[in-house]
């Protein structure tokens, strides 16, 4: 029983990390109908930046903030170089250039930090707190709380603020939005930046949780984040949060059932099942009505 609860807490923590990464993908997809494959590598890169900053003995808060800002900056660069010039091409074209940008980021990271799997320092306090008689790692609780706050922030940003409203217009009709005086380019940049910022937060937590940081992390996170996003309904951030938690729990369960080796297969199963059974996710996609 205790084991079960412990694992549940682990599942919750991992899941909320997936959700954080998912939000960046989900935002870009729900506005531009584009899978921004560079996002995973932006996250990886940002996490490596955090690693370097830790090495330079920055305080923890500054490390996280600066790395997240680096993520936002990378998001902006990706948008400028790999999205804006091909915005009007066949929709497979921006996907390919995003992938290309991701590969460049991965190669650059490999040049700087090398191809090995590196350990990631623990930036959060460790230890257990007693919650209803069970020892719960503080780290998991903090991760959960941080993810919850950031996902809520993203939701507010996209659905409750003027820039979010503008983004909705861009999603409905980019050209009409421009005619109405919405600064389309700035809105798209903001979306990319916000995605990069949140994603790097997720990436740092990911690296910290598994105590490992490596180049392929971005691609690994991609499938997991999308499984979470699709489970919750693409564009629906609360859904993605719940989806991420379900995925985290399912992974934990799969470790118990078929062994840890097949854990990474859970996301494929989830993606396929969602597409087969509920293409709009469990909680309904928040993609705009296309009418």
């Amino acid at each position: 029983m205790e084991y079960f609860l412990e694992q549940t807490v682990n599942g919750l923590a991992v899941g909320s990390i997936y959700a954080l990464i998912a939000v960046g993908y989900s935002m870009v997809y729900s506005i531009l109908y584009l899978i921004n494959f560079a996002h995973g590598d932006v996250i990886m890169f940002g996490a490596f930046v955090a690693l370097t900053l830790v090495g330079m003995a920055f305080p923890v808060a500054a490390v996280i903030l600066l790395a997240c800002c680096a993520g936002a900056l990378l998001g902006i660069i990706v948008e400028r170089i790999a999205y804006r010039p091909v915005r009007e091409a066949n929709r497979v074209v921006p996907m390919i250039s995003a992938l290309g940008a991701g590969l460049v980021l991965a190669a650059t990271a490999q040049l700087i930090w090398g191809p090995e799997v590196l350990p990631f320092p623990q930036l959060l306090p460790r230890g257990l707190v007693d919650v209803a008689g069970i020892g719960v790692p503080i780290q998991s609780l903090i991760i959960l709380a941080v993810a919850l706050v950031l996902v809520a922030g993203a939701t507010i940003l996209l659905y409750r603020t003027p820039i979010g409203l503008a983004a909705q217009c861009v999603c409905q009709d980019l050209y009409a939005a421009r005619l109405m005086g919405i600064p389309v380019n700035s809105v798209i940049v903001a979306i990319y930046a916000a995605g990069g910022f949140l994603g790097v937060a997720g990436g740092i937590l990911f690296a910290m949780y598994f105590n490992a940081i490596f180049i392929q992390m971005g691609l690994l996170a991609t499938t997991k984040a999308w499984a979470a996003a699709m489970l919750g309904g693409v564009g629906n951030f609360q859904g993605a949060f719940l989806g991420g938690i379900l995925l985290g729990l399912a992974e934990v369960a799969s470790v118990a059932l078929v062994g840890s080796a097949y854990k990474d297969g859970v996301s494929l199963v989830i993606i396929v099942l969602v597409l087969l059974l509920r293409p709009n996710g469990l909680f309904g996609a928040r993609l705009a009505e296309r009418s």
Binding site: G100, G102, L103, V104, A107, T108
Partner: peptide, 11 residues
């Protein structure tokens, strides 16, 4: 560096 060079060429 093949993937990276290829990626840059892709963009």
């Amino acid at each position: 560096l093949r993937p990276g060079i290829g990626g840059a060429l892709l963009v």
